[in-house]
């Protein structure tokens, strides 16, 4: 019974953190705190933090075996990181004024 209450409290705290981080994102965007490039980096960093919290506590990935986590996450991160290789081309297009 006790552990049931403590885990519910943990989940509720994670929810509060997630809502809080979303609130920070809203303020950053609404007040145009950063230039668009920096804003994208800031918002993505906050989103990655939120995704990490959801995976660790809500999807219980933290309690799975390390071999399982290491099979799933590194290839995913690598593939997504490789996709950013297209960005220099986007800047090239922007500088060419190709549109």
């Amino acid at each position: 019974m006790n552990s049931e209450h403590s885990s519910s409290r943990t989940y509720a705290w994670i929810w509060i953190y997630l809502v809080g981080l979303t609130g920070i994102e809203l303020v950053l965007a609404y007040r145009h705190v950063f230039t668009p490039g920096l804003m994208m980096v800031a918002l993505m960093a906050l989103s990655v933090a939120k995704a990490g919290m959801i995976m660790n506590w809500f999807m219980h990935l933290g309690t799975e075996r390390l071999t399982f986590v290491l099979t799933l996450l590194p290839p995913l991160i690598l593939v997504l990181a490789l996709l950013f290789g297209f960005f220099p081309d986007a800047y090239r297009l922007a500088q060419l004024g190709a549109h």
Partner: peptide, 14 residues
């Protein structure tokens, strides 16, 4: 839910 955490900032907040 997790995917929306990326769509919301990228599509709306940006």
């Amino acid at each position: 839910d997790l995917v929306w955490m990326f769509i919301f900032p990228l599509i709306y907040l940006m």
